[in-house]
Write a protein that binds this DNA or RNA. Structure first.
Lengths: 244, 244
DNA sequence: CGTGGGAAATTGTCCGGACAACCTATACTG
DNA sequence: CAGTATAGGTTGTCCGGACAATTTCCCACG
């Protein structure tokens, strides 16, 4: 356990909710109870509960109490992307298993994604992303980055090491902006097999480009989600908290 | 001015940022300065700044300060949805031709969208959205709203009038929050004909729910875009500011 | 003149307390 | 018995303070 105290409390509660300690709809302990249990101030307990609510795991009502939220049974899986924090939350709640790493030249599409010359040396990682809690297979993902001496030294190694290094790079301090675009496409032949769907079925293709503080592109990732197991969700506006 | 103190502070700051009191990239007053100006505790000032950050208007860095976040650049042929302003821009650049208006009972899905009882009286508008400049047909759209006496009087009329009234309602002053979710689906039979595609082809289904300032749902809209003519794009985080 | 170190500034975390707003269930009243 | 008033419990708001983590900037030092 590390990080701020409220994060530890939040992680513990998330874990216990996932394990079913409080079923959906059940009342959670009150703020005062949590204060006693974790030996923290009410302020800290509230900060933890705030995280859970922003993650959509609980619903709170003044005067009534805190309940475990329904996990949106209507949609198999819902990615929330209204903020970088939520995107990082998605990254933490899922696992990327890298199956292949290779160096190659950039084709036309990749060159545009990485903002480089066609044929430039790039590194490509291929893998599958699964939900940590449910083990549901979410998408096939290709990660592309320029093969500079720095990145080769950093990523051009074993898949496990490359992944660990990359995750540490995509942390809040360095990550500054993410561009995303989505489109409905026919499921590609290559991905159909590993995602257990038929080629041509509706799929959601996502292209994400990550930029650091100086505006430099860190990497581009292209994912293919089966249409029947994935929903993209977001919220716009200012008083996100005030409502509900 | 009403509502909690932190909301008043947040609203004031949002308004001043929009009026350009602090240009993009400029340092905002420190928390302590805001405490003095608004005569609130640091806790309350931070609560207000939290709202602004969650709305994507400012970027904060420990030790450095708080800066006004940059707006992402525009891309012509994609729909950008990183902010309510961009969503309204999309609404202005396109035209919605309403072909049918009817009153009916809410089915299961509609009831969930409108947050009402199944079978409740609702109004449904059906139409097509086209790009004003290129006349490209973008999607088929169904708009749902509760058939209260107020809305019936307001919208239960001719299609043209209903559309004009609705557009005037969906303006910045009343609109406060939009929830959106997207999924890849097979093209429905009903929409395939009017969109000139074959049923079952990859399509992007979008559900949008519009809320006013008080958090009340105004209406829900469900659109189906052909996969081959539409890309959804968004940007999270903040462009970097040319400091130094 | 460059550079490293330390002080100052700024946001992040955490504590304690108090009252308000709101919900629920119980007891009471007609 | 139905409806209402009341009391208790729970979350929301707000205050005050303290220290930690991080960044920025200036100055002494080589």
């Amino acid at each position: 356990m590390q990080g701020p105290r409220y994060q530890q409390v939040a992680n513990t509660l998330i874990d216990e909710i996932r394990r079913g300690r409080w079923p959906v709809g059940e009342l959670l302990p009150t703020e005062v109870d949590l204060c006693e249990r974790f030996a923290v101030s009410r302020h800290t307990a509230r900060e933890a509960l705030r995280r859970l609510r922003e993650a959509g795991m609980i619903e709170r009502r003044q005067g009534s109490g805190t309940r475990v939220a329904a996990l949106a049974p209507r949609v198999p899986y819902e990615q929330r992307v209204s903020s970088i924090e939520e995107l990082l939350q998605y990254g933490k709640a899922t696992r990327l298993d890298v199956t292949r790493i290779e160096r190659r030249g950039a084709d036309a599409a990749t060159a545009q994604w990485l903002d480089c010359q066609q044929g430039a040396a790039i590194i490509r990682l291929h893998g599958r992303r699964t939900d940590r809690a449910t083990q549901v297979l979410l998408c096939a993902t290709d990660v592309y980055l320029l093969a500079t001496p720095e990145t080769v030294k950093r990523y051009g190694d074993t898949p496990a090491l490359a992944l660990a290094t990359m995750l540490s790079d995509l942390n809040v301090s360095r990550l500054s902006r993410v561009e995303q675009s989505f489109a409905a496409v026919p499921m590609p032949k290559e991905a159909a097999g590993e995602l257990h769907t038929r080629p041509g079925a509706p799929a959601l293709a996502a292209l994400r480009r990550y930029f650091d503080r100086s505006g430099k592109l860190i990497l581009a990732a292209h994912s293919v989600h089966p249409g029947n197991t994935f929903t993209l969700s977001m919220s716009l506006g200012h008083d996100v908290i005030a409502a509900r």
